[in-house]
Design a protein around this nucleic acid. Structure first.
Lengths: 236, 236
DNA sequence: TAAATAGTGTCTTTAAGACAATATCTC
DNA sequence: GAGATATTGTCTTAAAGACACTATTTA
């Protein structure tokens, strides 16, 4: 076993400190498709390209990393996420031309209705449909970061209730199914889906019905506000 | 929206860089109990207390964070883990008396037989049973880090095959069950457990039988070396 | 032969999948 | 009433749980 460098993590030492940042994939569903909040970079490198909102960890302001994530979002839009989750920390020499960097990647979700209320984004901010991103591509390795977040979202949508965070405050079961189909990237069976969602006891009828569409449908709302439900099995 | 600090993650700036470290909870099963590799600290703060192996990210040596994790383990023992997984990145002002620090937490597992071959640890290293740790307690917030790793291990042992990484190269189904019971912290039903493991097609009979014990038992070995299997449902 | 552990048979239960049938709404 | 969508009924299937039973080994 080597005898050098046996210090524990935080001994004062002379190593070059890596740059630590937080990047957030902030997702929403609009027009039947997942969209992501992008920032147009105004300086090199990758000037003019789209990037995920992100920024340095501010040791003086941020108590922890989720605060950093919330802050970097708040610097770009007043639209606060309904859900936020740390996904992975990615680091390497090659991911940024300016040197060894580490970024803590977060996934954030906001409900359709909440986003509806607020569309006052800065001019450098833009919601972009994931489908359209294939050609545009993102700055740095943000395409890969987005892939990781997508993977996490698809996986967790199969056994948790997190797609509910993307739905408007009031929704029909058909809409809920559509949203789960988008996030799981699969088509779901109607009866199974409804049974599963209702048996979980996580939504409740508002008593109201929709007016639009070919036929009225019962409206539901989220019940266990703020709690992610874990279903006993996967769907889809 | 604020207009200050709108830089993307990695603009050159004057913020105090936080300290970035990696800590590893290196687990093994011995004597029917989970054990963790601890390091006795030889300097302040927390001198003399037990801590997880960890260390700075070395921008010059480490290509990515899992390399850092492997390196900090290698600095303490030649025993290479059979499995390694990034768990979470924890950061805050308060977790270390010397300032704002961030640590990327890893879980590492090593098989019983591999650990058997090598017990040449440095004198500051020691495998400690998790049960006995309650009174000793760990330095810094390493007790909390360990809790997070335990939680991850318990959860993933219910729907993946990762406890197989803790078993010796050759094992009986009863031993496998015992190991899964330890990692899931529950008692399992014999028939269900065997059916599940055999149907998954991830282990195979060696053809040999045990000699010890009250009765001979068939020996099995891992089949899909290096692949984690995801079971269709949870157990326990 | 008794005790203990290994291994099997099989019925039940849970929750998802398939798919048809019915209900209600709008035009 | 036709077409569309919402809602329900019910049979099937996959995989875990319960639990008793048989088999093999050692003392």
């Amino acid at each position: 076993m080597k005898t050098s460098s046996q210090n524990h993590s935080v001994e004062k030492d002379s190593f070059e400190k890596p740059i630590l940042t937080v990047d957030v994939a902030y997702l929403s569903i609009r027009g039947g498709e997942l969209e992501i909040l992008t920032i147009k970079r105004d300086k090199a490198p990758h000037e003019g390209e789209l990037a995920l909102p992100g920024g340095y960890v501010h040791c003086d302001e941020d108590e922890d990393l989720s605060e950093t994530a919330r802050r970097v979002i708040a610097e770009k839009t007043q639209l606060e996420p309904d859900y936020i989750e740390q996904v992975e920390t990615i680091a390497s020499r090659s991911r940024d031309p300016r040197g060894w960097t580490a970024t803590v990647l977060f996934m954030a979700l906001v409900s359709d209705s909440k986003r509806g209320e607020d569309d006052k984004l800065g001019k450098d901010c833009q919601w972009v449909a994931l489908g359209g991103l294939k050609r545009k591509s993102l700055a740095f390795d943000h395409g890969e970061l987005l892939s990781k977040v997508k993977e996490r979202l698809v996986a967790k949508s199969r056994y948790t209730s997190i797609p509910l965070y993307l739905l408007p405050k009031e929704f029909t079961l058909s809409e809920a199914q559509k949203y789960f189909e988008i996030t799981t990237q699969s088509t779901l069976e109607k009866k199974s889906f409804r049974r599963r969602l209702l048996d979980a006891d996580i939504i409740e009828e508002t008593g109201e019905q929709t007016k639009t569409g070919k036929r009225k449908a019962a409206l539901y709302r989220n019940k266990n506000d703020s709690n992610v439900h874990f279903f006993p099995r996967m769907i889809g």
